[in-house]
Design a protein around this nucleic acid. Sequence first.
DNA 1: CGTCCGACTGTAACCGATTACATCCTTGGA
DNA 2: TCCAAGGATGTAATCGGTTACAGTCGGACG
Lengths: 327, 327
Amino acid sequence: MRGVAARAGVSVATVSRFYSGAGPVSDDARVRVKEAADALGYVPNTAARSLRVQRTATLGVVLPDLYGDFFSELLRGLDGAARLHDRHLLVAGSHGGADELAETACQMLGRVDGLIVMCPGLGEEVAEANLPVGLPVVLLGSMATGFPSISVDDEASAAAMVRHLAHLGHRRIALIAGPSANADALDRLAAYERTVGDLGLHADPSLVVEGDFTERSGHQATCQLLALADRPTAVFAANDSMAIGALRACREAGLDVPGDIALAGFDDIPVAEYVTPGLTSVHVPIHEMGARAVSAVLAAVDDPSVVADPVVLPGRLVVRQSCGGAA
Amino acid sequence: MRGVAARAGVSVATVSRFYSGAGPVSDDARVRVKEAADALGYVPNTAARSLRVQRTATLGVVLPDLYGDFFSELLRGLDGAARLHDRHLLVAGSHGGADELAETACQMLGRVDGLIVMCPGLGEEVAEANLPVGLPVVLLGSMATGFPSISVDDEASAAAMVRHLAHLGHRRIALIAGPSANADALDRLAAYERTVGDLGLHADPSLVVEGDFTERSGHQATCQLLALADRPTAVFAANDSMAIGALRACREAGLDVPGDIALAGFDDIPVAEYVTPGLTSVHVPIHEMGARAVSAVLAAVDDPSVVADPVVLPGRLVVRQSCGGAA
DNA sequence: CGTCCGACTGTAACCGATTACATCCTTGGA
DNA sequence: TCCAAGGATGTAATCGGTTACAGTCGGACG
């Protein structure tokens, strides 16, 4: 910048004013600065500016993983919302727990104005203890007192799905659960168990198999379920990826879906509509979560004193063909 | 930091040395600094450090879009590789062309050590003209003289797929092309046309339909192809997402895949293995591309003087069930 | 003609760290 | 006892910008 100023025969202040747009700059100086900058290939250093003005126009996103359509969609939603507000995204994927999360957050201090954190496996106290002070944080997919949060009503949605299946006449409904370290997975499992109990359905521990949210694990879990002596008439997978793996397992076993066995997922990722049969699922408003998270963190940046109430978005049952019962 | 120094009764230099690990610090000072930092909730400001040492430990990633499994996988690959080298990722999705790309790149100046850019629609001269000087850049998926680049051999891979289909006896092979603004899409189209010509297959302009890489467009394009009086016996989609859309369209039309019509994709995204029938596709080593891109940009950061040669990774034909001919 | 005002510009302090250099204090060896 | 070596620490310049403040200048107005 000093180089540009010297070449243009002005002071650094004028160059700065030229770029920031604030403060008056004569047309004469304007063209000379522009000329000098072009000649030198000068571009203002964003990081230095951020240091001085204490705003980075960047939001940090910390995710537990990046695998699969869910995170892809989430990131897309976040990016879209951030772009709408002229913010950038500093992304860190696959933190392995509280320590890594804290370290990542500290790394981001000074580079971001606020943090959007998804830590599905962590208790709230952990989140609270490890985050650097003074950095506005919004929790995604989990709740903790003292932090604004955006999450989905796993309980109600999963329960609705089980009721839907029961309504279609299924009594032996299996669950392919998510990893037990994951809060969402636990919520969905709890809702399943509760609803199965409430409705007086067949409650059999062997009908619940734990997966890890990947297609592969859904496939394996389904093979296990199909091998049962008294096999389920419906399978509810705790996310769509596992449901897609389950679909393949059913096909391989020569079973017609939904004729021989019903199949349901959770998340309603884009491809759910395009597999055959179309996957009945719980629509999670991923984009909206992203947009809300961005809004919430920006609000927290503007006024750190108020802590917004947790937002719990409802899921929506999307009935396609994989369970029968579609129009 | 001055606060911590004051509270600990030491100078800022000592505090800095404590955190950087370089330089000697007495045990006494060490514990006092730690104490003060804890009490004040102090965490060193990464941005300020970066400004001083002129290294950010961050790589910028500029993508044209974030939609779909391909980018999801790519990002995952990049993140994994970056994490391996203790680097962070500053991600910008959906740049709308040369101008936005240049602006994004400038925004990143000072926040990143290097840039990984994917600009499938841009001519090389554009890329060269708009990027800020002094920032190491690696091109992903496209090539330009003067820049290191990592890309896939679209031509050879697409040609191999057409030959594969021809080998299975197909003479009327349709192509669902990608958007004509996309260099990869054009390469695949060119390879298709050339190979169809070379093999003396039925070359009919109505057998080529342009899509936009989404499931939806693949579905639409396939509906159009199936409505032809003399419809194709095989459909080659320029990416897997469109192939999945095509699969659904075939199902809806009551056609058996591969019995009535063969279907092939490109990219070999994870879900390709899990749709039914398994999608014959061209495996693109997405993770490896990410890893190589990270290595290349780090190499460029270390020694900006050498420009690495372009790397063209081969695609690999993955034969599953969607075209028949599988084992 | 003197004064005031506003447009324009420059100087220098500051954001929060790093680090070269100087200083001070031990300690070991001659 | 004196000196050199080296550990521990502080001072101040620096990274690349922003911006408060002060100063210059030309024109309008009384």
